[in-house]
Simulated assay, not measured.
Amino acid sequence: MSTAGLDRRARRRQETIAEILDVAIELMETEGVAALSLSAVARRLGMQPPSLYQYFPSKMAIYDALFQRGAEKLRDAYRAPRDAARSTDPLELNLIAATAFSRWCLGHQVYCQLLFWRTIPGFEPSPAAYAPAQEALNDLRDHLQATVDAGYLRPDATSDEALALYTSMTAGLLSQQMANEPDVSHEEGRFSRLLPVVLEMFYQRYAPTRGK
């Protein structure tokens, strides 16, 4: 969140919130996503635990803020390379976007656990926190629609069922990568490098019927 245009007190508050979230991510990386402790966050920041409640009323509120931050970062990481690409071929653009998605996820695995796996009992993101994730899903539907318009896919490739299949296939691939080779890059990963194959499987499932 930008602090431009805020007065000094409001800017300092936003900076402290950002510090809290940074520390929370660091602790989740070492202790586990579900093991986050508000007292540990406060100690790392040099503040008393009650002071933390001035910024976040509960641990779930921190998770919610982190979900929104992660979803925004992933949405932007997904958009930027595709928007900057010179190609107009939808299949190539889809691969560029999917590859950017994979690289970001492998580089931010704590966020991914929060975004894609139910690692925190009872946690549900608020509508505001979920909004950027929905924007990313809408982007995916638009990308698939462009692929339909180019004649590569049937119209039902943009259906809710098709999006569920697409996201299940790509997220499953990344889940396997993180579970088996968490420290390996997208290009070197035994599973992540199969991303073009997974996309091709999706395209075959929704390929236009010949002769119709």
Rank of each mutant, 00 (worst) to 15 (best):
T158H: 02
R82F: 12
R12W: 05
A18D: 11
Q14T: 03
V33G: 02
T209Q: 12
E92W: 04
L45V: 03
T158A: 04
T30E: 13
S159D: 13
A97R: 02
S58W: 06
A84I: 08
A131H: 07
G46I: 03
G107E: 15
R154C: 01
P50F: 03
Q176E: 10
Y53F: 11
A42E: 07
D149W: 01
Y206Q: 10
L91M: 13
V33D: 00
V110T: 09
Q113I: 00
V110F: 06
G70C: 10
D149H: 05
P155Y: 09
S2K: 06
Y53D: 01
G189C: 07
G70E: 11
L93D: 00
R75K: 14
S39P: 01
A10G: 04
I20H: 03
L173M: 15
V110N: 02
S126Q: 04
V41C: 04
E92L: 14
L144A: 00
Y166G: 10
T147P: 04
A65T: 13
P132E: 02
P127W: 02
E15P: 00
A146H: 07
T30M: 11
L163M: 12
A77V: 12
L36D: 02
W117K: 03
N138D: 15
N180A: 12
M1L: 13
F56K: 05
T158R: 00
I25D: 07
I20Q: 01
A84M: 12
R11F: 06
T88A: 13
K73G: 09
A136T: 09
A128H: 05
L174Q: 06
L195Y: 03
P155L: 10
A179D: 06
L173I: 06
G46L: 10
L66T: 09
R118Y: 06
R141Y: 02
S159N: 11
N94Y: 01
E135I: 14
Y63D: 07
A77Q: 11
E92P: 00
R210Y: 06
K73Q: 15
P196M: 12
R82W: 09
V197C: 02
D139N: 07
M178E: 04
L52M: 07
A98F: 03
W117C: 01
S175K: 12
R44I: 09
G107Q: 09
R9F: 10
S168M: 08
F56A: 06
S159G: 05
A85M: 08
P90D: 05
P49H: 07
D83Q: 15
R69M: 10
Y53N: 09
Q176P: 01
L74Q: 09
E188M: 14
A179W: 06
P81Q: 08
M60A: 15
G107F: 05
E15Y: 04
L74G: 03
G107W: 00
M178W: 04
E187S: 13
A4W: 06
A157Y: 07
A34W: 04
P90F: 08
V197D: 07
